[in-house]
Write a protein that binds this DNA or RNA. Structure first.
Lengths: 238, 238
DNA sequence: CGCCGGATTAAACATGCGTTTAATGTATTG
DNA sequence: CAATACATTAAACGCATGTTTAATCCGGCG
């Protein structure tokens, strides 16, 4: 219903069949993956297979339009709630709303396919995470890092990767997957260990970290001194 | 009566055509994904397309045989080095050896496809992680957890998910991907933030964790309708 | 030798795909 | 009203896929 209105991009008046096909494509792609046939999409939209190509040129054109639209919805959603943590939280919010469930599923599928949309969203999330972590450090709630950018990327990679893997295995277990339930379970199962790790760490002392920092210092010094490449196979004990 | 003397036993000297096709299939699947055509596999093995079906019945049969073989290699590899952390580390070791690169790529692809092999390996890794963490706790290097099983699953989900996402984005950037280089970069980029997180945590205090434990206690109390506990610094048992 | 069974191949088959083409409907417009 | 432009459809095209079929090769065995 509310998805019908479209001001994404330059095309102005596709509030009709064109938008219906686009929404149907997003839904079908979300449920069956991007290997879904053009005929299935056409059937879901209630039109003939030829019409979708007449409107979007090709299947890739349709994909591109879907990506652009989803990205635009995310951007708009993000603008609506600036105070929120960013796309990561926005994605969770999205999945909590039935109306946006196919969008979430589409994004998950897009990540799994590894094409442009997922990567674009990921980079957004990394930047948002870095900014958000910086705010936490400023307010004293988050410990400072020796490399804030690397930490933001690491945390984003972990959280997004874990969620994708969780959704994927869940999806493989029972299809169709209920994303609301899946996200709730995801949070319920992992909240405690995540908070434990974030609050108390995993190691009882910092010997590992110290050792790594020491080797890094040594490496930096040896780089200044001479250009040597430490070929592996030096240490191999089991 | 057919005598399958090459069946996943000692694969060192099985130059039989059946094994050659299987290896070629693993290589092609690893490089091009499971959408790769049967003809491409046949060409890589130097045989005709019909022969692979003659040996394996169908493409699914070939897939099943590849999965079984890979799983068997992992199992054997794991048995060879019992003292090692388990499949997680074994997979990294595998990728470091050129010979096993296609196996690693096949496993990554299998995870992404979300079929049985990936899930089976994942559960193995969770169990190994739990056992390994328990050893760390016993030796005092790892902090105890309020829910060791959940922590093992959480850490495995994070690490495997992060690596898969990293490989996938890397794979999308430049194909074919050099897994040795990719894993080296992965470790290099994320070693510092990972060690920071594991050694020092992320939050500067435990207020978030305390709040969560408090709500959990409240929920538990409403179930038991019993006495309250004053603070959360003491360890809880589930 | 003869022949016979499995290995192997080339070719055909059926199907689904994305795409194209030509025709039909439909609405707006001059 | 007629004509023009666009939406829409049904059908066919070309291609790639997995699978099957029939024929050929080839080594072992009576």
């Amino acid at each position: 219903m509310r998805l019908t209105n479209d001001d994404a991009g330059d095309s102005r008046s596709d509030l009709t069949t064109r938008a219906r096909i686009r929404d149907a494509a997003i839904a079908v792609f979300a449920e069956s993956g991007f290997t879904a046939g053009l005929r299935a999409i056409a059937a879901a939209a209630g039109v003939s297979p030829g019409l979708v190509n007449h409107h979007f040129g090709s299947k890739d054109g349709l994909r591109a339009e879907c990506d652009k639209y989803v990205l635009d919805v995310i951007r708009r959603r993000k603008a609506e709630a600036i105070a929120t943590p960013g796309p990561a939280q926005a994605m969770k919010d999205l999945a909590e709303i039935d109306e946006y469930a196919p969008l979430f599923a589409y994004i998950v599928r897009s990540f799994q396919a590894g094409d442009g949309l997922g990567e674009s969203l990921f980079e957004q999330m990394v930047q948002d995470a870095e900014q958000y972590l910086e705010m936490g450090v400023a307010s004293g709630q988050v410990r400072p890092s020796r490399d804030p950018a690397a930490r933001a990327r690491y945390l984003t990679l972990n959280n997004v990767g874990a969620m994708l893997l969780y959704m994927q295995m869940r999806m493989h277990r029972d299809t169709p997957i209920d994303y609301r339930e899946a996200i709730r379970d995801f949070a319920g199962d992992l909240a405690l260990p995540a908070l434990e790790l974030y609050s108390e760490g995993l190691f009882s002392d910092s010997s590992m970290l110290d050792a790594y920092l020491a080797t890094e210092d040594v490496a930096a010094q040896s780089e200044d001194a001479e250009t040597r490449q430490p070929d592996s196979t030096t240490e191999e004990q089991k």
